[in-house]
Amino acid sequence: MTATSAKAMTYDNKGILSTLGRDGLLQVILIANTVLMLFPVVIMVFSGFKSNMEIFNNPFAVPDFANLSNYIDVWTQTNFVRYLFNSVFVTGFSLLLILVLGTMAAYAIARYEFFGASFLLLFFIAGLTLPLKLAIIPLFILFRDLGILNSYWALIAVYVAMGLPSTVFIMTGFIRSLPRELEDAARMDGASELRIMWSVMLPLTRPAMIISAIHNLVPIWNDFFFPLVFIQNDALKTLPQGLTSFMGEYTTDWGVMFAGLTLAAAPITVVYVILSRQFINGMTSGALK
């Protein structure tokens, strides 16, 4: 072995060790960040199985998971079920409208050439920079005059307006990346424009639709501000607003409160995981094809 080859091997070994050390440090940082992010969630879940005394005396102790009294109280002695239904309805209907309207607008902007298409896209993009909370007073007056104040439709209208800009932006970029040969082939086979959009293009845009759904799902589900302003009837409150009623003026049953928070976080967590897996599977199947 020559001196040159020996030096090259030494440099290669140093490079491998440096890469392994950097990767190892990155793994440690990611694990530490995961623990830090999950720690409050674990404490919340544990506290849902404890009484007030156990929470204050041993907040970090592992509880008796067979003690379901707090969850039974949440389900039977509060309006949690009604709040859950309201959140599911408002979030689901808002996402449906966001995806339908956003996909249609993005398809028109991305696939058809017409006067003002670029301006229309810029109009939607501008919506990403303008928070609707700045217009809360005009919105309140508008909804009052329309007669939809203190109803589901006030929240749905706001959430659709919030979600459309990001959805149109994401979907437009994705649809523009799809090959036009697919449309041309469908037109040659006699397919209508609606048929091309529904049967050819929409199945290919599934990953982008999943991204848009995930992007809008969590903010809508967790929103507290707009229900607080537009909803006064207790029967119409969503979970973030309704859970505040669990806190008493003088005393609070923290075990019931944490149980309610755990149940409120469970559906959105499950849906988020399912959508994430579908997004990964969609991208993988697209790569294989």
Rank of each mutant, 00 (worst) to 15 (best):
G116S: 06
K7V: 13
L30T: 12
N150E: 05
S18I: 06
V273E: 11
P203V: 13
V88Q: 07
N57I: 12
A8W: 08
Q241S: 11
A126G: 07
L121S: 02
N86T: 03
F60D: 00
V256T: 14
L164C: 00
L38Y: 08
G147V: 05
A8F: 09
N86G: 04
L164R: 03
A161D: 01
T262Q: 02
I170D: 00
I148R: 15
Y83H: 05
V35N: 06
V273R: 10
L288W: 04
I137G: 10
G163N: 05
S18M: 13
I72S: 08
L99H: 02
I280G: 04
R82T: 14
R22C: 11
L95M: 10
V74E: 00
Y112N: 07
G102R: 07
P207R: 02
I211W: 02
D64S: 11
M283G: 06
V88L: 15
D145V: 12
L120C: 08
N58K: 04
E54Q: 11
V168Y: 02
M44N: 06
W198S: 11
L132H: 07
R206K: 15
M44P: 05
S166I: 14
M201E: 08
Y83W: 15
G248K: 07
I137E: 09
L149R: 13
M201F: 10
V158C: 00
D73N: 07
L99K: 01
L122V: 04
L146K: 08
I72V: 14
L17G: 11
F224L: 15
S87V: 05
N57T: 13
H215D: 07
T252I: 05
V271A: 15
V158R: 00
N13Y: 11
E113C: 04
F258Q: 05
G190C: 07
A191H: 12
L236S: 04
I98T: 06
V81T: 09
A6F: 12
V41D: 09
V88S: 09
M171S: 01
L142C: 05
G21T: 06
T172H: 03
T205C: 08
T2H: 15
M209H: 02
G147Y: 14
L97G: 02
M1I: 12
F46H: 00
G190I: 08
F169M: 10
A213I: 09
R82L: 14
N216S: 09
L134M: 14
V200D: 02
F230L: 08
S69C: 05
I280V: 15
L84I: 04
L139D: 00
I175W: 00
A154W: 04
A126F: 13
N86R: 01
D223W: 02
E113N: 09
I29H: 09
L20W: 11
P219M: 12
I210D: 01
